[in-house]
């Protein structure tokens, strides 16, 4: 009973299998399981849908083509045509996060324990994704522009003594990007799933209180239905927002000092 209505229980991480590695043991957790499942599902669905390669696409193929067009248009509008060389990166991130968010919307899933899990509701995972974006931005920026990339930290048209103040601020602002990028996805998924579970918990608690309770449980049940629809939207939107911000940061790597 307590477990059924505990809104935080769904975020628990537990080990499924231990992988021995010398003196160490790596735990393959339910989080890892869902990430692997997400990668396999995305690859499988995309390759299955594109296996026919028809000139006139069927339903599955046109969905994949829409996804492709969507991401292309997004990169083009945010980072210009030069940004298209990052298409594989952005598309992979977008598909991975979208699939993870959508898997999180399933209350039951063929997993050990048969319960759903949202890996994007864990800060360490969204933060790792954000850090990979920053690694690409810094790596490509330095590779492409050399030390001119660091002109990002020296805004132009400022008398030089102000650099003592402005450069640290710019550096902090730059370093805060992965934090905001990761926290935003994490916070949205966490808050949404807790909210869902709280209202679902009301249904269970009221339902165990006899006829009046069952009648009263209709209100939170309706709320859960509405929230599920909202959460589906949020699941898509947050994947989109993450990809858009990735594009914005990548455009800094393409042309630093251009704000």
């Amino acid at each position: 009973m307590a477990d059924a209505t505990n809104p935080i229980k769904q975020f628990e991480i537990h080990s499924i299998a231990g992988i021995p590695f010398g003196d160490w043991k790596f735990d393959f957790t339910n989080s890892s399981y869902f990430m692997v499942t997400s990668v396999i599902l995305v690859s499988l669905l995309l390759s299955l849908a594109m296996s026919r390669r028809a000139l006139t696409p069927g339903r599955a193929q046109s969905m994949v083509e829409m996804l492709y067009e969507f991401v292309t248009a997004m990169i083009r509008s945010m980072a210009g045509d030069a940004g298209l060389k990052f298409f594989p990166f952005v598309f992979t991130l977008f598909a991975f996060i979208l699939m993870g968010n959508m898997l999180g919307m399933l209350p039951y899933f063929p997993a050990p324990g048969f319960h759903g899990f949202t890996f994007t509701s864990h800060l360490i995972i969204t933060f790792a994704l954000a850090m990979s974006v920053m690694a690409v931005v810094i790596g490509y920026g330095v590779f492409r522009h050399g030390f001119k990339f660091f002109s990002l930290f020296f805004p132009s048209g400022v008398p030089w003594p102000l650099y003592f103040l402005l450069t640290p601020i710019e550096i902090i602002s730059f370093l805060s990007r992965p934090v905001t990028l990761g926290v935003r996805l994490f916070a949205n998924m966490l808050a949404g799933h807790i909210l869902l579970k709280v209202f679902a918990g009301f249904v269970v608690m009221l339902g165990s209180m006899g006829a009046i309770g069952i009648a009263a449980a209709i209100a939170p049940l309706a709320m859960v239905v509405a929230l599920t629809a909202l959460e589906l939207l949020v699941a898509f939107l947050q994947a989109y927002v993450f990809a858009v911000l990735t594009c914005i940061y990548l455009s800094d790597a393409l042309e630093p000092g251009h704000h």
Partner: peptide
Amino acid sequence: VRYGSEFAGGVIV
């Protein structure tokens, strides 16, 4: 969420 996280991120870092 957008503005909040942008601001909080700066302060935290």
